[in-house]
């Protein structure tokens, strides 16, 4: 085998490519990286295909042994990372040699880190994607999070150069975020007062937040609906169940559900939400659909214009 062996899997480490698309008709959800920006940078710094399979390391605690000479990069949540005992920087590519240990400590800022290897992990796709959705037992190596002893195949690689993303271009993961929302779905079932309250209150991220959805706590919001037929749920949808506490539905959400929704958070901001620890605070800001698309193209253009710098290492 050429690749890596999992020594310690960490709390929740999942193989992810960009996600599983076109399988909602079977009831399969999207999966994929919660923080697409950090994921995209990981692959870009290594010159990988943008859909190459990486590890999403939630909370940290991962250690891998290399069985191949290759190049790696770690982006996303901050934490102490080491190769063979020597501390390395994040957002920077490094060579790793056969027999060396790659260790990631627990996340100290942000929650999700992305570990990419040159050429990507060689994982057979399931329904067109390697993305692991534990609830569905689909994707990854065995439809589950990484376990000690798992083998992560990849090809050897000898880089001609090393790259890093300049510090000023790296995102910061604080403990608050403003989440931009495109209003939609059952928005009309929430009266003026509810809208005002929703967009003018602060909500806390609770412990009951995971890859399916982030449950928030704060001002109670009521809809006038007494029951509705289940319908398709898109990424970022904000569901308001009877207790009036919003849930932002993320990558591993069920594809259909029957709670009223006031709108959906744009994907750039669900990525920021995914990096918040419980207790962090968020606010919602209403934007138009046109603004959402403008933002998408601005962010995309910014990503493409930002050039990594060469490093000696």
């Amino acid at each position: 085998m050429s690749g890596f062996v999992v020594k310690q899997p960490g709390l929740l480490t999942l193989i992810q490519d960009r996600g599983r698309f076109g399988a909602h008709n079977l009831g399969l959800t999207t999966g994929g990286p919660l923080d697409t920006l950090a994921f995209d940078w990981a692959n870009r710094l290594l010159g990988n295909d943008e859909n190459a399979s990486c590890l999403e390391v939630s909370f940290g605690g991962l250690s891998l042994e290399a069985e191949v000479d290759t190049t790696i990069v770690i982006t996303g949540a901050k934490g102490t990372c080491k190769i063979d005992g020597n501390e390395i920087s994040q957002w920077q590519t490094y060579s790793i040699k056969k027999g060396e240990l790659l260790e990631m400590g627990f996340a100290t800022e942000g929650v999700r880190a992305y570990l990419a290897v040159a050429g990507g992990l060689d994982i057979a796709p399931s329904f067109g994607s390697s993305s692991t959705v534990v609830r569905e037992k689909i994707g990854g190596i065995h439809g589950d999070k990484l376990q000690a002893g798992d083998e992560l195949p990849c090809q050897p690689n000898a880089p001609s150069q090393h790259l890093r993303l300049a510090e000023e271009d790296q995102p910061n993961y604080g403990k608050q975020a403003t989440l931009r929302v495109v209003k939609g779905y059952q928005q009309a079932a929430f009266d003026h007062v509810q809208h005002w309250r929703f967009f003018n209150s602060e909500y806390q991220v609770t412990e009951r937040s995971d890859r399916m959805g982030f449950r928030l706590e704060g001002e109670v919001i009521h809809s006038s609906m007494v029951g509705m037929l289940s319908e398709g749920i898109c990424h970022g949808a904000i569901q308001i169940p009877a207790d009036g506490q919003p849930i932002v539905l993320m990558n591993d959400r069920q594809t259909i559900g029957g709670y009223p929704k006031i709108g959906s958070v744009i994907s750039r901001d669900t990525a920021r939400l995914a990096q918040l620890v419980p207790g962090s605070s968020v606010r919602f800001e209403s934007i138009s659909l046109e603004q959402a698309h403008n933002l998408h193209w601005l962010e995309k253009s910014r990503f493409l214009r930002t050039q990594p710098v060469k490093t000696a290492k």
């Binding site: 698309f21 076109g22 399988a23 909602h24 008709n25 037929l229 289940s230 319908e231 398709g232 749920i233 898109c234 594809t255 259909i256 659909l289 046109e290 698309h293 998408h296 995309k300």
Partner: peptide, 22 residues
């Protein structure tokens, strides 16, 4: 179009942001 999710009385239509606009 990326995904279509038919349900009881609705149809969710998910499209590719990079290939189209509202």
């Amino acid at each position: 179009i990326i995904d279509l999710v038919p349900s009881y009385s609705s149809l969710l239509v998910i499209y590719d942001l990079n290939k189209s606009d509202p």
